[in-house]
Nucleic acid binder design. Structure first.
Lengths: 138, 138
DNA sequence: TATAATTTTGTAATCATTTCAATTTTAAAA
DNA sequence: TTTTAAAATTGAAATGATTACAAAATTATA
């Protein structure tokens, strides 16, 4: 995304576009690799020496609350973030930890069967198993 | 589950039934509340004073690897465990943190659309939103 | 019974995340 | 533009779940 597109995207989600927020959102839009906080920080800090890791925590929490990004809990160690908010699932290799996108047909999305006492806002679908590389290496 | 049933269940999953393992599996079979390690420890330790929290970590990791329990990553703070390995989804209230079971029809289970490079072993479906109680209290 | 293998235990270390108060930046008012 | 208030950023310290590890205890095997 261009800076202008990032601005627009943030404003659409009711997020004031500070320098840091724009940088983080642009990073996420260009790195659809489900990065951790640490990865984002390490990649951004060379060009923004005053950047604080706390800011990345604050910012991504804000993005998530405003539904501008997806937060993945598939990895028990770190929360991971996904700038692609379109409907898709994720696969985690239990051996090497790699996380892959998994396209989902509309018809494959499970409908909520929990009755009227619960009001879901988001659905997350995780597949866990082994990737080809790890099967071959064993 | 009775002790005998727990024994059988563990053996079926290729797990040697030590005293601790039987106690933990029996606890899980009787408390389908998605407890954390801490909750399990605090509930069991009065009757097993020498029980160590590390044992619970080790044991549940083993149960999970042997597919005798489900591990839930829906809560970013703690891993939670579910003795019910039948097919169902989970709902987490973002306000109060409560976790509910959600029945799933067979037809609602998403099929894996990721091609042949990934070999899934388990599928986890999480709904996140707000529960009735929290909507009323706000 | 002796020996080896497995399991359990407790302590210490690790590390992601949160808290919090101070500083800086941005927005609003005068 | 200057003053003032609100919001955002920062860094250090605290928290807390999980893991590493080595010793002790238990179980299985010879």
């Amino acid at each position: 995304m261009s800076i202008q597109e990032v601005y627009h995207h943030l404003k659409e989600h009711d997020i004031k576009p500070s320098v840091q927020r724009v940088a983080i959102m642009q990073y996420l839009s260009e790195h659809l690799t489900h990065p951790t906080i640490d990865q984002i920080y390490n990649d951004l800090v060379p060009d923004m020496p005053t950047l604080s890791k706390t800011t990345i925590y604050n910012t991504l929490r804000l993005f998530y609350d405003k539904k501008a990004v997806i937060a993945l809990f598939i990895d028990e160690k770190n929360v991971r973030y996904d700038g692609d908010t379109s409907n898709h699932a994720h696969f985690k290799c239990k051996k090497c930890g790699a996380i892959y996108d998994v396209p989902l047909e509309e018809t494959d999305i499970p409908t909520f069967g929990g009755g009227s006492d619960l009001y879901p806002e988001e659905t997350q679908i995780y597949f866990l198993g082994t990737c080809k590389k790890c099967i071959q290496n064993q």
